[in-house]
Design a protein around this nucleic acid. Structure first.
Lengths: 105, 105
DNA sequence: AGAACAGTTCACCATTTGGTGAAGTATTGC
DNA sequence: GCAATACTTCACCAAATGGTGAACTGTTCT
């Protein structure tokens, strides 16, 4: 669900994690390091992102490496596109009026 | 804050409200009607959206009319754009490789 | 085998969230 | 002025959230 995706992004720490992962994969430790946060807290945050389908996790040696899942963001892109279509349409029609070349509809 | 914006969108009812408002302004009653929800609950939801800057509220007679604030969504658009730039870049570079016209960098 | 390392799972806690019913406020219509 | 309408404010409640320390699991290194 889209609201689940937004819920996963509704926390500053998780937003920072997504930002970090957009620059490349990272281990749990690397993700936790910039934030004054304990390992269990980061495990919880990443679990939220995984459950929302935004991030994948895999074991590598004794570390756990996280990656972003780009597909998951296309749902958001789609929604934003549909939403902004409304007022872009409005703006377009306004511009036509200002240019005086409305088609009479 | 961006996480506040996402927090406001992290609830199915509020997401539906934004969808409804994208088709035009509506009163509190019109917003509440499709959802099995009491007036106080809808007041709270809309307050969250207003506090996040996504919606504006104005009194009209004895009703309260809500409107979407398009500007607020540009922050999300910007973030999504920056984010997807990463893997679009990756995809572009992959396509170049597949076509065999990489520039050697 | 045993110590050290990287994370996770397990209670547990304080705060926030989404909901309610009851009472209060502002506006309209008789 | 008074009743009805349209919300909002005010406790209040149950469940979810973000955090913790302690104990456990899996992996590497010696």
């Amino acid at each position: 669900m889209l609201s689940t995706t937004f819920g996963a992004l509704a926390d500053p720490t998780r937003l920072a994690v997504v930002g970090r992962l957009s620059r490349g994969d990272a281990t749990m430790g690397e993700l936790a390091e910039p934030h004054r946060i304990t390992p269990p807290a980061m495990t919880k945050h990443v679990t939220v992102l995984v459950d929302a389908g935004l991030v994948s996790r895999r074991r590598v040696g004794r570390t756990v490496v996280c990656s972003l899942r780009p597909e998951a963001f296309s749902e958001v892109e789609q929604w934003l596109g549909d939403l902004t279509a409304y007022w872009n349409g409005t703006v377009d029609r306004l511009e036509e009026l200002l240019r005086g070349d409305g088609d009479g509809h």
